[in-house]
Amino acid sequence: MTIVGSETLLEVRGVRKSFRSGNRQLEVLKGIEMSVESRRLTMLRGRSGSGKTTLLNLLGGLDRPTEGEVLFRGLPLQQWSDKRLTVVRRKEIGFIFQSFALLPLLTARENVELSLRMAGIPRAEWKKRVDRCLELVGLTKRAFHRPSELSGGEQQRVAIAKAIAHRPRLLLADEPTAELDTLMAARIIEAFREIVEEERIAICMTTHDSTLWGAADVVYQMVDGRIVPD
């Protein structure tokens, strides 16, 4: 169901994904049907090995389906060239991986600025935007610290600020709270909720943590490569 005030950013239609494993084909995704709406927090829940990360990679154009299609704003990602996909990822999609993917020699502020540089945002806009993103994740006072001087939770929040700095339409996060304690995980989800409300960014994240599901607008349960009724 389409939620009032939102639009469908992503549609997944009959997606299957197989990988070669020795002499046989291993089918990881088995006919996925789902959508991601703008201005909503969507969670893909399921155990390790259920296909969540594989699906997330397809949603972001990091991989292509074996069958079916992934539509981003109505256009089929799997038909785009690598060059076009790279441009879209830099400008319209943000990523948060399980590893924080921060450059160790750069401060929190400089790591966020890097995202703006890669997206081609004019330098004159950097300061205001970086200040805003660090404020959203509660790290204004840690802006000039390098990753080694930050806790795991703080590094994850820098990664979030970096991922939203270029104002993407969609943020994809793979188990963003997996290595955090319960309190810090709750703070990350609180930051996600604020980002959805204030930045109007759609967030789709994977998680196996049942304590987080209640914070989502939409939850898809994955079992053995399929989305099953919750």
Rank of each mutant, 00 (worst) to 15 (best):
L85C: 05
V87S: 15
V88I: 15
V88G: 00
V88D: 00
R89W: 06
R90W: 03
E92V: 08
I93A: 04
I96S: 06
I96M: 14
I96C: 08
F97Y: 12
S99H: 12
S99Y: 11
F100N: 13
A101F: 14
A101M: 14
L102M: 06
L102E: 02
L103W: 11
L103A: 10
L106T: 03
L106H: 09
T107S: 13
A108H: 01
A108R: 01
R109W: 12
N111M: 06
N111V: 06
V112S: 04
E113I: 08
L114T: 02
S115K: 07
S115M: 07
L116Q: 06
M118S: 08
M118H: 09
A119I: 08
A119W: 08
G120L: 07
G120V: 06
P122L: 00
P122F: 01
R123I: 09
R123V: 12
R123M: 08
A124C: 10
E125K: 09
W126R: 00
K127G: 03
R129S: 00
R129C: 00
R129H: 01
V130S: 02
D131A: 14
C133P: 07
C133G: 06
L134Q: 01
L134H: 01
E135G: 14
L136I: 14
V137G: 06
T140D: 05
K141P: 03
R142M: 13
R142T: 04
R142H: 14
R142C: 10
F144W: 15
R146I: 11
R146S: 11
P147E: 11
P147T: 11
E149C: 05
E149L: 08
L150F: 10
G152A: 09
E154S: 06
Q155C: 08
I160C: 03
K162G: 02
